[in-house]
Design a protein around this nucleic acid. Structure first.
Length: 444
RNA sequence: GGGGACGUGGUGUAGCGGUUUAACACAUCUCCCUGUCACGGAGAAGAUCGCCGGUUCAAAUCCGGUCGUCCCCGCCA
């Protein structure tokens, strides 16, 4: 008999069918055993009536335990009056088991009970036992949201006429000139893991004007926080022929709105598990210069961000608070960062050369994206590389791109895990990562 | 790199100098149960309290070291 997916069983009342999946939970009433069977489409109650079944079925059904993998054949029936469960999609029906095939048993003591609504585990255990904890309903909900972010990003970028590219992650030139790279031996040469697709996506502008990439980036930064990972998925974009750098924010604004809208459309059940409130999104996301938000935070919250430096996490949190109070917005762009806190390829502001045409996008007080207009003239780029005390020789192919002619352009990088982390109000970004890589964690 | 906190059965916690043969919940095993869905009931097994050393008549409990973990700051998405 062909397997039927659990979600299709309510339409099969009266029919004999076969379902396959994992045992999510079991409730043994002696002569009556209830099993919640989980497959990719949902959960279905299976009833074993031991009094009515043959000896063999009765004996093995008593042995069934959580996470065993089974196929069950039987008749789909409406549940008796009063025994319906409105919390489950298949709660009005059940299947009366007649045949049971065990595909796999559990051979190890389970460190958790997957049928419980909350796992209540320490983060270290949750990640150590990842191969199992990922099966939990809430974990799966997180990664369904993650999948929506990826899908929505691709969809909206294509709609905005960007072309998807994939750039190398093994690279020979450090893209930001910093020291935060993983290095390794590549057939006798020194290689790096890409910390950003920066150079390659800019080269992509020379091909398609508008490109985007969804891919991993690697950061050798020993941070111990709830919002950092050493490997994460970056949602990158780069666009040519911009008249000013506000156009970059205009596009990013469309993108982030589409992503958020998609999640609230496609992941209602997942969001409910985390009691996630819809984000406050105004018609236009406020944009404010860093130097102005500095003043506002000082006046409103008596908190001072150090001069000529990047905004700190506390400052970001307060900027987020201010945006919510003043503009009723969970999103806010901070713009015009000082030259000293941006990479060498960032375009300085002609009106104030100490500031750059750059921005960060904050979501609920956490930075989820960074972007800027880039320098597109080779001479200026070389000058800036030298000002940053770097050697132009190390960036030859990158500089060549601009010698061959490039339009004014700019782009952004969105942190995929950060979006999911803030949307679901997770205690840490590590829960929004299948197998997080942090300073201490390389396995599993 | 700087700072803080925590390590107790499989999991999550309580106990914080002697009433402890280390307690509770869930999981595990045995038994009872025909309408449960976080099923219920009875019982059993399972921890030398991370490790090493010190203080003390007495240490899971206090002190020091060590290893591990988590968080904050810096930096970033």
């Amino acid at each position: 008999m062909k397997r039927l997916l659990v979600k299709l069983t309510p339409k099969a009342i009266g029919r004999k069918i076969k379902v396959c999946g994992w045992i999510n939970s079991r409730r043994d009433h002696g002569k009556l055993i209830f099993i919640n069977l989980r497959d990719r489409s949902g959960i279905l109650q299976v009833v074993f009536r031991l009094a009515d079944s043959n000896q063999q079925l009765a004996t093995i059904s008593q042995k069934l335990r959580p996470e065993w993998v089974v196929c069950i054949e039987g008749e789909v029936k409406e549940r008796p009056k009063g025994a319906e469960n409105p919390e489950v999609e298949t709660g009005k029906i059940e299947i009366i088991a007649e045949k049971l095939e065990i595909l796999a048993m559990v051979k190890k003591e389970m460190p958790l009970d997957l049928s419980k609504k909350e796992l209540k585990m320490k983060l270290s255990t949750l990640l150590k036992e990842r191969v199992l904890t990922l099966r939990h309903e809430k974990s799966r909900a997180i990664f369904r949201v993650f999948e929506t972010v990826l899908g929505a990003y691709r969809k909206v970028m294509k709609k905005l006429d960007f072309v998807e590219i994939k750039t190398p992650k093994i690279i020979g030139t450090a893209s930001e000139g910093g020291a935060n790279f993983f290095t390794f031996d590549y057939f006798g040469k020194k290689a790096f893991l890409a910390q950003s697709p920066q150079f390659y996506k800019q080269i992509g502008v020379g091909m398609f004007e508008r490109v985007f990439e969804i891919g991993p980036v690697f950061r050798k930064e020993p941070h111990f926080t709830t919002r950092h990972l050493n490997e994460y998925i970056s949602l990158d974009a780069e666009m040519g022929f911009i008249e000013n750098f506000n156009e970059i924010m205009d596009e990013l604004e469309k993108v982030i709105k589409f992503i958020l809208k998609s999640i609230w459309k496609e992941n209602k059940k997942d969001l409910k598990l985390f009691s996630a409130e819809p984000p406050k999104i105004p018609k236009r996301i406020p944009r404010i210069k860093l130097r102005e938000i500095r003043k506002i935070i000082k006046e409103k919250y008596q908190y001072e961000i150090p001069e000529d430096s990047d905004i700190d996490p506390k400052g970001e949190e307060l900027a987020g608070k201010w945006a919510r109070e003043k503009w009723k917005s969970d999103l806010v762009f901070l713009t015009h960062y000082p030259k000293s806190c941006r990479p060498f390829y960032t375009m300085p502001d002609k009106e104030n050369p100490e500031e750059t045409l750059s921005f960060d996008l904050l979501f609920k007080g956490v930075e989820i994206a960074t972007g800027s207009q880039r320098i597109h003239k080779a001479e200026e780029l070389i000058k800036n590389i030298k000002e940053f005390k770097l050697d132009p020789k190390d960036f030859k192919f990158y500089i060549d791109t601009f010698k061959y002619g490039m339009p004014p352009h700019g782009g952004w990088a969105l942190g995929c895990e950060r979006i999911v982390y803030k949307i679901l109000n997770l205690p840490t970004i590590k829960e929004a990562t299948l197998f997080p890589r942090d300073v201490k964690r390389l396995v599993p």
